[in-house]
Design a protein around this nucleic acid. Structure first.
Lengths: 145, 145
DNA sequence: TATTATAATAGTAATGATTACTGTAATTGA
DNA sequence: TCAATTACAGTAATCATTACTATTATAATA
């Protein structure tokens, strides 16, 4: 059913941009960047190619909060983390013992588990640090009131 | 910042309907059902109350495929499974050893992990059974060709 | 019970990410 | 070079969700 792909400068530019990024940009962000190289590229082209690349398994589409999808050129299995403070998304390695969880599920579930999407949320290292800094300076201010 | 809640027949009806269901219905399905009881309820009211209940932690909003959100009145932690065949969503208990995975992540991650959303996909028990049945009858047909 | 403050509603309009459509252009294979 | 077909730009349409507004329901108080 899969039709033969023809090369296109647009698709190559989208994919190579995505491969430089670790922050899982949205279609809109990808569009804004690729536009610098191909000024008259259309947003529809960006979406179509992202769908195409996802379909072929060359990239992964992330649906985290349902606001808008994000795209990831790293296709090896990994978890994701979204910061509730800055909304940034980053990768998390999958701990080895997660395979135990998968085994348990496979043994108890009577269907077929093909894959898993896990994402964690909370405060990212950066925002945690900023938060501590501001509490620290607040305490200093109180001391010297 | 949380304002005081006033009772409303609409919200009570939405919540009690949701509590009878294990299949995590969408806002639209909830709307269709609650309408039988309160014919002139508006879809906006359904959305607003679902958001309100989610905010207060009385229900959980599930964003699985990004097409449309689903709602779940079971608030104790559990995984979800979506069948790629029938698109149905069901609950999965969290295996005990998943706490090991969480511990590993907490020890290696330099931010704060507040929660986790995991969903698995594949073929549900029902669709798997139907599939086997059809292969079985296909084999029979080939034998008796 | 009557009054008052305010949360909630119905109905409708607006939003915004994504998809579909259409005529034209680029790519590939012969 | 030609033919077949994939991809494109530009634009319109879709559709789940949210925002808005005038009115109604709820609950606390007098």
């Amino acid at each position: 059913m899969e039709t033969k792909l023809k090369r296109s400068r647009q698709r190559e530019s989208i994919l190579s941009f995505l491969m430089t990024r670790q922050d899982h940009p949205t279609a809109d962000i990808i569009y804004e960047h690729v536009r610098k190289e191909i000024p008259n590229i259309s947003l529809g082209t960006v979406y179509r190619n992202l769908a195409l690349l996802t379909e072929r398994g060359e990239i992964i589409k992330l649906t985290l909060d349902g606001i808008c999808d994000r795209y990831d050129a790293t296709t090896t299995p990994h978890f994701h983390f979204q910061c509730s403070c800055c909304k940034g998304v980053s990768d998390m390695p999958i701990p080895d013992d997660f395979t135990n969880t998968l085994n348990t599920l496979n043994n108890t579930f009577h269907g077929i588990i093909e894959g898993c999407t896990s994402y964690f949320y909370g405060i990212c290292p950066d925002c945690k640090q900023k938060n501590q800094d501001s509490i620290h300076s607040q305490n200093l201010a109180e001391k010297n009131h």
